[in-house]
């Protein structure tokens, strides 16, 4: 969840920018937009021999699995 690039600490625009980046990263996490990155991390950490799915394949697979494995949404 850390911002990708470092801006000089202490300066006001830098702090603001970091704050915004942090918020955007958080929001992405809540939406689930970082699912592919997490999949790659898992794939690497597990030391699979097969190549990971491409981004396109991953999202297809994710959506198609939801078809048969629905998640509830509350009232």
């Amino acid at each position: 969840m850390e911002p990708q690039t470092e801006t000089p600490p202490g300066s006001l625009p830098g702090t603001l920018l970091r704050g915004l980046r942090g918020f955007a990263a958080y929001f992405r996490g809540v939406l689930g937009a970082d699912a592919y990155r997490k999949y790659l991390e898992h794939h690497e950490a597990c030391g699979h021999s097969a190549a990971p799915m491409s981004e396109r394949q991953f999202w297809r697979d994710r959506m198609d699995r939801q078809d048969s494995n629905p998640q509830g949404r509350c009232c």
Partner: peptide
């Protein structure tokens, strides 16, 4: 852990989720 359904998620992100 399978990188898909079972994924360790940062607690603050999971709170929002």
């Amino acid at each position: 852990a399978d990188g898909k359904d079972y994924v360790r998620t940062d607690r603050n992100v999971l709170f929002g989720h």
